[in-house]
């Protein structure tokens, strides 16, 4: 009986062993796993050599609607014209990357720059209220630039002075998003949040930039929250230059609808400016005014 029991035991072991799989089921060649591939073109090569290899920044210009947030997935928008990609990204590199690198270094830039750009040819429209989305950024990592099919700098054929609005918008968006990473890494002084305390509102869409200025904000979008305010200040000061920002401050002549007198609005903007300048110096060891001069100069190169 014992022998039987033992042999039964051995046999049952055999059963279990016989079911043991040596390895996992073979994983098939799943299409699209690891991202889509295609034959590289001149554009792909330029992006690889100019942005991906030196800065680890990748740029997706081929159609992928899932790069924008899901809320827009049912809207109609289109991929970019291939002809625009190099013009856009080379000017972005010059206005943004090259200037930070010149004031600090490549190590700094590579550590704190957004790593992924997704490009789209048209804006995303909301026909219900006539608004359109021109740029979206997520998590300090990704920047979506939209409506690039009509992007033109003064170095492109057929440039008109009116095209400068759109070119500056693209530069503004990139500087804005890049600045988010800086304050998300080291926060600015809480002093900043008290300058316009109680005036932040998600209702900012109903204000014009000029109205926002009269309350001491750089742009209407600054009114969203202190973080947006902070990066809008940086972006406006950099892309408009010192002269442009001074002009913005000096042009505040009327009391705002919320009762801010011009002197108070001006002093708020100047306080914010001082905090930005000191933040760049103490936290990042960057002379903001020198950076500002460089950025503005490169912006002017592309709009005049």
């Amino acid at each position: 009986m014992k022998i039987v029991k033992i042999s039964l035991l051995i046999l049952s072991l055999g059963v279990m062993a016989s079911c043991k799989k040596e390895k996992l089921d073979p994983v098939g060649d799943i299409p699209g796993l690891g991202g889509d591939t295609w034959e590289p073109t001149v554009v792909d090569k330029w992006l690889l050599d100019s942005l991906t290899n030196p800065f680890n920044i990748s740029v997706k210009y081929k159609w992928d609607p899932h790069e924008v947030s899901d809320q827009y997935i049912l809207r109609d928008f289109v991929p970019p014209r291939e002809e625009v990609v190099i013009s856009l990204m080379s000017s972005v590199k010059k206005v943004w990357a090259d200037n930070y690198i010149a004031e600090r270094d490549t190590v700094f830039f590579n550590r704190y720059s957004p790593k992924f750009f997704a490009l789209f040819g048209s804006a995303i429209y909301n026909p219900a209220n006539g608004t359109k989305v021109l740029g979206i950024a997520e998590g300090g990592k990704k920047i979506n630039l939209l409506e690039i099919n009509t992007f033109k700098t003064s170095k492109d054929a057929g440039y008109k002075p009116s095209d400068s609005t759109q070119a500056k918008m693209a530069f503004h968006t990139v500087h804005h998003e890049a600045a988010h990473i800086l304050h998300q890494t080291v926060l600015y002084t809480p002093e900043y949040k008290r300058i316009n305390v109680g005036m932040y509102t998600t209702n900012w869409v109903n204000y014009t930039d000029a109205e926002a200025n009269r309350d001491g904000f750089a742009t209407a979008y600054s009114m969203q929250d202190p973080n947006e305010d902070f990066v809008e200040m940086i972006s406006i000061m950099l892309t408009e230059g010192k002269e442009g920002f001074d002009r913005l401050v000096d042009n505040i002549k009327d009391t705002s609808t919320r009762g801010t007198i011009p002197a108070l609005a001006k002093s708020r903007l100047r306080q914010k400016e001082a905090i930005v300048v000191s933040y760049f110096k103490t936290v990042w060891n960057i002379d903001f005014y020198r950076l500002q001069e460089r950025v503005r100069k490169s912006v002017e190169y592309y709009i005049y």
Binding site: Y61, F77, V78, P79, G121, I124, N149
Partner: peptide, 11 residues
């Protein structure tokens, strides 16, 4: 990428 087809789809 953008071609004649997208002109018709352009919003």
């Amino acid at each position: 990428t953008y071609t004649y087809l997208h002109v018709l789809a352009d919003p």
